[in-house]
Protein backbone atom coordinates (compact mmCIF):
# COMPACT_ATOMS: atom_id res chain seq x y z
CA UNK A 1 0.00 0.00 0.00
CA UNK A 2 1.59 3.27 -1.07
CA UNK A 3 1.08 6.69 0.49
CA UNK A 4 -1.62 7.68 -1.98
CA UNK A 5 -3.65 4.55 -1.28
CA UNK A 6 -3.25 4.99 2.46
CA UNK A 7 -4.43 8.60 2.23
CA UNK A 8 -7.34 7.53 0.02
CA UNK A 9 -8.36 5.00 2.67
CA UNK A 10 -8.13 7.64 5.41
CA UNK A 11 -10.22 10.00 3.29
CA UNK A 12 -12.92 7.39 2.70
CA UNK A 13 -12.98 6.51 6.39
CA UNK A 14 -13.30 10.16 7.42
CA UNK A 15 -15.89 10.94 4.74
CA UNK A 16 -18.01 7.96 5.74
CA UNK A 17 -17.78 9.02 9.39
CA UNK A 18 -19.03 12.49 8.39
CA UNK A 19 -21.90 11.04 6.37
CA UNK A 20 -22.82 8.70 9.23
CA UNK A 21 -22.73 11.52 11.75
CA UNK A 22 -25.06 13.64 9.60
CA UNK A 23 -27.33 10.63 9.07
CA UNK A 24 -27.46 9.79 12.78
CA UNK A 25 -28.25 13.38 13.75
CA UNK A 26 -30.95 13.68 11.11
CA UNK A 27 -32.57 10.45 12.28
CA UNK A 28 -32.36 11.55 15.89
CA UNK A 29 -33.93 14.92 15.09
CA UNK A 30 -36.72 13.21 13.15
CA UNK A 31 -37.41 10.84 16.02
CA UNK A 32 -37.46 13.69 18.50
CA UNK A 33 -39.87 15.63 16.31
CA UNK A 34 -42.09 12.58 15.96
CA UNK A 35 -42.02 12.09 19.69
CA UNK A 36 -43.03 15.69 20.29
CA UNK A 37 -45.76 15.50 17.65
CA UNK A 38 -47.22 12.47 19.35
CA UNK A 39 -47.01 14.30 22.64
CA UNK A 40 -45.45 11.31 24.26
CA UNK A 41 -44.00 12.56 27.48
CA UNK A 42 -40.64 11.21 28.50
CA UNK A 43 -40.63 10.17 32.10
CA UNK A 44 -38.29 12.01 34.46
CA UNK A 45 -36.67 8.75 35.47
CA UNK A 46 -35.90 7.83 31.87
CA UNK A 47 -34.55 11.29 31.10
CA UNK A 48 -32.32 11.19 34.17
CA UNK A 49 -31.02 7.81 33.10
CA UNK A 50 -30.20 9.13 29.62
CA UNK A 51 -28.55 12.24 31.03
CA UNK A 52 -26.47 10.13 33.39
CA UNK A 53 -25.34 7.91 30.52
CA UNK A 54 -24.39 10.91 28.39
CA UNK A 55 -22.58 12.58 31.29
CA UNK A 56 -20.69 9.40 32.03
CA UNK A 57 -19.62 9.13 28.40
CA UNK A 58 -18.36 12.70 28.20
CA UNK A 59 -16.67 12.52 31.59
CA UNK A 60 -14.63 9.67 30.19
CA UNK A 61 -13.83 11.41 26.95
CA UNK A 62 -13.33 15.04 27.84
CA UNK A 63 -10.72 16.54 30.13
CA UNK A 64 -11.85 18.65 33.03
CA UNK A 65 -11.96 22.27 31.97
CA UNK A 66 -9.93 24.49 34.23
CA UNK A 67 -10.83 28.10 34.38
CA UNK A 68 -7.88 30.33 34.85
CA UNK A 69 -7.82 34.00 34.14
CA UNK A 70 -4.81 34.87 32.06
CA UNK A 71 -3.55 38.01 30.60
CA UNK A 72 -4.39 38.40 26.96
CA UNK A 73 -0.86 38.07 25.69
CA UNK A 74 -0.25 34.87 27.65
CA UNK A 75 -3.53 33.44 26.41
CA UNK A 76 -2.62 34.20 22.84
CA UNK A 77 0.79 32.59 23.30
CA UNK A 78 -0.75 29.52 24.93
CA UNK A 79 -3.31 29.19 22.12
CA UNK A 80 -0.57 29.39 19.54
CA UNK A 81 1.37 26.65 21.28
CA UNK A 82 -1.76 24.47 21.51
CA UNK A 83 -2.63 24.96 17.85
CA UNK A 84 0.91 24.15 16.78
CA UNK A 85 0.90 21.04 18.99
CA UNK A 86 -2.46 19.90 17.64
CA UNK A 87 -1.38 20.45 14.05
CA UNK A 88 1.88 18.66 14.69
CA UNK A 89 0.19 15.78 16.49
CA UNK A 90 -2.46 15.45 13.81
CA UNK A 91 0.10 15.47 11.05
CA UNK A 92 2.24 13.05 13.03
CA UNK A 93 -0.69 10.71 13.57
CA UNK A 94 -2.02 10.69 10.04
CA UNK A 95 1.02 11.04 7.81
CA UNK A 96 3.62 8.32 7.73
CA UNK A 97 5.77 10.54 5.55
CA UNK A 98 5.64 13.30 8.17
CA UNK A 99 6.55 10.83 10.92
CA UNK A 100 9.52 9.60 8.95
CA UNK A 101 10.67 13.13 8.13
CA UNK A 102 10.46 14.09 11.82
CA UNK A 103 12.40 11.04 12.93
CA UNK A 104 15.01 11.63 10.26
CA UNK A 105 15.31 15.25 11.34
CA UNK A 106 15.88 14.18 14.93
CA UNK A 107 18.51 11.69 13.89
CA UNK A 108 20.26 14.26 11.72
CA UNK A 109 20.32 16.93 14.40
CA UNK A 110 21.45 14.65 17.19
CA UNK A 111 24.10 12.56 15.55
CA UNK A 112 26.51 14.14 13.19
CA UNK A 113 27.76 10.82 11.86
CA UNK A 114 24.52 8.83 12.00
CA UNK A 115 23.30 7.51 8.68
CA UNK A 116 19.90 6.03 9.41
CA UNK A 117 16.88 6.53 7.14
CA UNK A 118 13.35 5.53 8.10
CA UNK A 119 11.26 4.70 5.05
CA UNK A 120 7.61 3.92 4.38
CA UNK A 121 6.45 0.34 4.80
CA UNK A 122 7.00 -2.00 1.94
CA UNK A 123 4.00 -4.18 1.12
CA UNK A 124 6.16 -7.29 1.14
CA UNK A 125 7.39 -6.65 4.67
CA UNK A 126 4.25 -6.50 6.78
CA UNK A 127 5.21 -8.42 9.90
CA UNK A 128 8.42 -8.31 11.91
CA UNK A 129 8.63 -12.03 12.68
CA UNK A 130 7.23 -13.61 9.55
CA UNK A 131 6.87 -13.08 5.84
CA UNK A 132 4.09 -13.96 3.42
CA UNK A 133 6.02 -15.84 0.77
CA UNK A 134 3.14 -16.28 -1.64
CA UNK A 135 -0.24 -14.72 -2.31
CA UNK A 136 -2.66 -15.57 -5.11
CA UNK A 137 -2.22 -13.40 -8.20
CA UNK A 138 -4.13 -10.10 -8.43
CA UNK A 139 -4.51 -9.66 -4.66
CA UNK A 140 -3.30 -6.24 -3.53
CA UNK A 141 -2.94 -4.78 -0.05
CA UNK A 142 -5.89 -2.53 0.88
CA UNK A 143 -5.65 -2.23 4.68
CA UNK A 144 -2.70 -2.69 6.98
CA UNK A 145 -1.84 -2.39 10.64
CA UNK A 146 1.86 -2.96 11.33
CA UNK A 147 2.59 -6.34 12.86
CA UNK A 148 -1.10 -7.04 13.37
CA UNK A 149 -3.19 -7.45 10.25
CA UNK A 150 -3.14 -7.15 6.49
CA UNK A 151 -6.20 -7.13 4.23
CA UNK A 152 -5.86 -7.91 0.53
CA UNK A 153 -8.42 -7.62 -2.26
CA UNK A 154 -8.60 -8.85 -5.83
CA UNK A 155 -10.25 -6.95 -8.73
CA UNK A 156 -13.51 -8.89 -8.22
CA UNK A 157 -13.78 -7.69 -4.63
CA UNK A 158 -12.79 -10.95 -2.95
CA UNK A 159 -10.99 -10.39 0.34
CA UNK A 160 -8.08 -12.16 1.97
CA UNK A 161 -7.17 -11.33 5.54
CA UNK A 162 -4.05 -12.25 7.49
CA UNK A 163 -3.97 -11.62 11.23
CA UNK A 164 -0.95 -12.10 13.45
CA UNK A 165 -1.97 -13.27 16.89
CA UNK A 166 -1.42 -10.95 19.82
CA UNK A 167 -2.17 -10.87 23.54
CA UNK A 168 -2.07 -14.60 23.72
CA UNK A 169 -4.71 -15.73 21.29
CA UNK A 170 -7.20 -15.47 18.48
CA UNK A 171 -10.94 -16.12 18.51
CA UNK A 172 -11.86 -18.97 16.17
CA UNK A 173 -15.43 -19.56 15.08
CA UNK A 174 -15.83 -23.34 14.98
CA UNK A 175 -19.60 -23.41 15.21
CA UNK A 176 -21.38 -25.41 12.48
CA UNK A 177 -18.60 -25.53 9.90
CA UNK A 178 -19.14 -27.21 6.52
CA UNK A 179 -15.96 -29.04 7.34
CA UNK A 180 -12.99 -28.74 9.67
CA UNK A 181 -9.61 -30.47 9.49
CA UNK A 182 -6.52 -30.54 11.64
CA UNK A 183 -3.33 -30.21 9.59
CA UNK A 184 0.40 -29.97 10.00
CA UNK A 185 2.04 -27.34 7.82
CA UNK A 186 5.83 -27.28 7.78
CA UNK A 187 5.91 -28.75 11.29
CA UNK A 188 3.32 -26.29 12.64
CA UNK A 189 -0.14 -27.32 13.82
CA UNK A 190 -3.03 -25.82 11.93
CA UNK A 191 -6.82 -26.00 11.76
CA UNK A 192 -8.63 -25.52 8.46
CA UNK A 193 -12.30 -24.53 8.59
CA UNK A 194 -14.65 -24.06 5.64
CA UNK A 195 -17.82 -22.24 6.58
CA UNK A 196 -20.29 -19.93 4.85
CA UNK A 197 -18.33 -19.89 1.59
CA UNK A 198 -15.08 -18.84 3.16
CA UNK A 199 -11.85 -20.54 4.19
CA UNK A 200 -10.40 -19.99 7.62
CA UNK A 201 -7.01 -21.32 8.69
CA UNK A 202 -5.33 -20.92 12.04
CA UNK A 203 -1.65 -21.72 12.14
CA UNK A 204 0.38 -21.96 15.33
CA UNK A 205 4.12 -21.64 15.66
CA UNK A 206 4.97 -22.84 19.18
CA UNK A 207 8.64 -22.03 18.81
CA UNK A 208 7.90 -18.32 18.34
CA UNK A 209 4.73 -18.45 20.42
CA UNK A 210 2.85 -17.10 17.43
CA UNK A 211 -0.60 -17.64 15.95
CA UNK A 212 -1.51 -16.67 12.40
CA UNK A 213 -5.10 -16.42 11.27
CA UNK A 214 -5.95 -16.43 7.55
CA UNK A 215 -9.45 -15.89 6.18
CA UNK A 216 -10.40 -15.82 2.53
CA UNK A 217 -13.54 -15.76 0.41
CA UNK A 218 -14.21 -18.86 -1.62
CA UNK A 219 -12.46 -17.48 -4.70
CA UNK A 220 -9.61 -19.97 -4.94
CA UNK A 221 -9.02 -23.68 -4.58
CA UNK A 222 -8.27 -25.19 -1.21
CA UNK A 223 -4.77 -26.01 -2.49
CA UNK A 224 -4.15 -22.36 -3.30
CA UNK A 225 -5.45 -21.29 0.09
CA UNK A 226 -3.22 -23.79 1.88
CA UNK A 227 -0.26 -22.65 -0.18
CA UNK A 228 -0.53 -19.20 1.43
CA UNK A 229 0.10 -20.85 4.80
CA UNK A 230 2.73 -23.23 3.47
CA UNK A 231 4.77 -20.36 2.07
CA UNK A 232 4.79 -18.31 5.26
CA UNK A 233 8.38 -17.94 6.45
CA UNK A 234 8.96 -17.38 10.14
CA UNK A 235 12.00 -15.48 11.33
CA UNK A 236 13.83 -17.08 14.22
Amino acid sequence: MNTKEALQEQYEDAYLALLMDAYAREKAAALLKECEANDEAISDAFEEKCTAAIDAYFRKNQPVVRRFRLRKILLAAAMTVVIVCVLFTTAFAFSERFRNMTRNLMIETQEQYTDIQIQETDSSDLFSDMELGWLPPNFTLVEYEPDLTALFEDPEGHLLSVLRGYNGGIVIDTEDPDYMRELNINGNDAVLIYKKNSYHLTLTNLRLDLIVDIICDDCMTEEEFLRIAEEIRFYD
Binding site: E12, D13, L16, V142, E143, T149, L151, G157, L159, S161, L163, I170, V171, I172, D173, H200, D213, I215
Partner: peptide, 15 residues
Protein backbone atom coordinates in the same frame (compact mmCIF):
# COMPACT_ATOMS: atom_id res chain seq x y z
CA UNK B 1 -17.93 -13.46 15.03
CA UNK B 2 -14.18 -13.16 14.74
CA UNK B 3 -12.40 -9.82 14.63
CA UNK B 4 -11.13 -10.47 11.15
CA UNK B 5 -14.56 -11.44 9.86
CA UNK B 6 -15.88 -8.18 11.30
CA UNK B 7 -13.07 -6.19 9.69
CA UNK B 8 -13.95 -7.73 6.33
CA UNK B 9 -17.67 -6.98 6.72
CA UNK B 10 -17.03 -3.36 7.62
CA UNK B 11 -14.54 -2.99 4.77
CA UNK B 12 -17.16 -4.28 2.33
CA UNK B 13 -19.81 -1.93 3.69
CA UNK B 14 -17.46 1.03 3.55
CA UNK B 15 -16.45 0.28 -0.01
Amino acid sequence: CTEEAMRMRVYRLRK
